[in-house]
């Protein structure tokens, strides 16, 4: 048992780094994913993850596989798409999903084209699927730093953000926090996607945000429980995915996301908010 679950982490430094990276992602990116889910923007997270690609690719084109260049490029591209989509939403008849879809599709196409200008397919795979087993010190520090900043920002934004999700009209009526909460949150989404993209790649980063959140939503009634459970699910899936990858020799990123998927499906079957709960016959209903 020890050999199966613990030894890989004690014996291999790259596994320890990967585990630390997963912990940071679970603490930073997953709470952001919970709010994406609650704001009904789960698919928007996916769109955003594509939007950061050309920035990262431009950074890659200019400086090779440089952490700083790809990070800054990704964040800039993500923010440009977020604010351009926001501007279009406010100033035209297009709703947010349509304007965002337009920008991220263009962004993705540009990104793939830029990557193909120079790199081999291997590089493209790295960008799309990340390299959680190859995290160096700098990447790890970046992921941990982004997770820390995210937690602090979420703590500061918590009340306005909850109100912005629950009743935006009311928040607009009593304060000027509504745009701060909205755009502040979108910025958190972007930086966490970039953080996730170093470990899991652009396509998988959304997985560790949304899947644990969706699974936790099926179990939890209150927001604190929901956040806590989602983080636990994410970290548990991260550790299990790494072990799976280690023992069966499959790529770590997809393994982590697939374990998240298993947690989601089990929750879907077993949780009180899932598929079965409402369909079982009720033996004794309550008095009132």
């Amino acid at each position: 048992m020890f050999d199966l679950l613990i030894a890989p982490f004690t014996e291999f430094a790259f596994m320890r780094r990967a585990l630390a990276g997963c912990l940071a992602l679970a603490l930073g990116a997953t709470p952001v994913g919970v709010f994406l889910l609650l704001r009904r923007m789960s698919l928007m997270g996916d769109a955003m993850s594509h939007a950061i690609l050309p920035g990262a690719a431009l950074g890659y084109l200019a400086f090779g596989l440089s952490l700083g260049a790809m990070t800054i490029g990704g964040i800039v591209a993500g923010l440009v798409v977020v604010f351009a989509a926001g501007l279009v939403t406010r100033a035209s008849v297009l709703k947010e999903d349509a304007s965002l879809a337009a920008f991220y599709l263009l962004s993705l196409a540009a990104g793939v084209m830029i990557v193909s200008l120079r790199g081999q397919n291997l590089d493209l795979l790295h960008v799309l699927f990340g390299s959680v087993l190859g995290l160096d010190d700098a990447s790890l520090l970046l992921i941990a730093g982004i997770a820390s900043v995210t937690l602090v920002c979420l703590a500061l934004l918590f009340r306005p953000l909850v109100m912005e999700c629950f009743d935006p009209a009311f928040l607009r009526g009593v304060s000027r926090w509504s745009p701060v909460a909205h755009y502040g949150f979108l910025m958190l989404v972007v930086v966490n996607l970039v953080s996730g993209f170093h470990a899991l790649g652009t396509l998988m980063a959304v997985g560790i945000m949304i899947l644990p959140s969706a699974a936790a939503r099926l179990w939890a009634k209150g927001l604190p429980a929901l956040l806590l459970l989602a983080v636990l699910f994410a970290f548990g899936s991260g550790a299990s995915g790494l072990l799976l990858s280690f023992h069966v020799d499959v790529p770590a990123g997809p393994a982590i996301v697939l374990v998240c998927g298993v947690v989601y499906f089990v929750s879907l079957l077993a949780a009180p908010g899932g598929l079965l709960a409402g369909r079982l016959p009720v033996r004794h209903h309550l008095e009132s």
Binding site: L38, V162, M163, C165, F166, D167, P168, A169, F170, V174, A220, K221, G222, L223, L226
Partner: peptide
């Protein structure tokens, strides 16, 4: 624009 499915309690809503 209240989101009825949002997990908040009646107390929290009134306290807003």
């Amino acid at each position: 624009e209240i989101d009825h499915s949002f997990p908040v309690s009646v107390f929290d809503v009134v306290a807003m």
